[in-house]
């Protein structure tokens, strides 16, 4: 069993539990122990874009220090945590002046050498680079054959590409390859990397509703039966807010939105109570039962 420090983050500990529980259980059955970091604090949720905002880097720096005591990798899954921690690590590694300023705000951690070698990774990178999608196909117990899944590429995991150093956001393939590895049919659609409206659901919900509706319409037009995401906020906008979309447009047909780890959980035949479908607003159960996947 390989053990990695794991940073679940606030959303995965509460409102996006389905993403978290499936991840731990699925990875366990693949031989990986995701060990939650002790006493972690919120990553800050938003990477500080203003050059003079140093204080917002303190919390990610603390997490990076903690993880570095256990391993040279830190596993994240929430797209916001991944974005904040990966970019923070890059800036703290490369910008020594900024690093010093941030360390000035810290206590015991700051006396140690900065863990430059720590790599912040997304859980899908374990599946892709360590296990390998081809091997994953061998390890799954149930193929998602015939399930037409449209992978949605959230902003925060892929952009800005120079800082995230993840995959080309203009032509991302990683989730499509993941769906294919699980035996499903990956459906490319033109809005696959458009923003869902993100946090403006707080201040201008009507605008983000429009953004999310475009994405779901675009996926449906090319024959998708369900969407895939790994971002809790995208999941909220694309799944929970379908309630409003149905009210707004008479011809709107709801579509289930899976978390990345829920699909992995189905393919690995995790018990249904660990898949967290009760948290999905649009229940995927009818679709899965129809296909004999549950």
């Amino acid at each position: 069993m390989v053990s990695y420090p794991y940073f679940p983050g606030c959303a995965l500990s509460t409102k996006a539990k389905a993403l978290d529980i499936c991840a731990r259980e699925a990875m366990k059955s693949l031989g990986y122990d995701l060990k939650e970091i002790d006493d972690w604090t919120c990553c800050g949720a938003v990477f500080p874009l203003a050059e003079d905002e140093h204080i917002r880097l303190v919390s990610p720096a603390r997490t990076i220090f903690k993880a570095s005591k256990i391993s040279d990798k830190l596993v994240t899954l929430c797209s916001a945590c991944f974005n904040v921690l990966r970019r923070s690590q890059k800036v703290l590694k490369e910008n020594l002046e900024k690093r010093q300023r941030v360390q000035n705000y810290m206590e015991e951690e700051a006396v140690e050498n900065y863990p430059e070698n720590l790599r912040v990774i997304h859980l899908i990178e374990i599946l892709k680079d360590e296990i390998g999608f081809e091997n994953l196909t061998q390890k799954i117990k149930k193929s998602l054959k015939g399930l037409k899944i449209a992978p949605f590429y959230d902003c925060l995991t892929f952009r800005p590409p120079k800082e995230m150093e993840f995959e080309d956001p203009e032509n991302p393939r990683i989730y499509s390859n993941f769906v294919t590895a699980l035996g499903g049919e990956a459906i490319d659609f033109s809005y696959r990397s458009e923003c869902c409206g993100a946090h403006i659901s707080v201040s201008n919900p009507e605008v983000s509703l429009e953004c999310s509706m475009r994405i779901l319409d675009s996926a449906r037009r090319v024959g998708a039966e369900a969407l895939l995401t790994s971002c809790p906020l995208c999941h909220y906008n694309l799944d929970a807010r379908q309630k409003e979309m149905v009210e707004k447009r008479i011809d709107f047909k709801p579509m289930p939105v899976f978390y990345l780890t829920q699909l992995l959980g189905i393919a690995l035949e995790l018990p249904e109570n660990l898949l967290g479908f009760e948290k999905n607003y649009v229940s995927p159960l009818p679709l899965l039962k129809e296909r004999g996947l549950l």
Partner: peptide, 27 residues
Amino acid sequence: NYTDIEKLSEDVLDEIPQQGIIAGFRK
């Protein structure tokens, strides 16, 4: 300020993930 906290509905605050609330409140 832009976001008026008092006008936000309880339903939204209950459902929206923390990353959305924090990003929204930075306004």
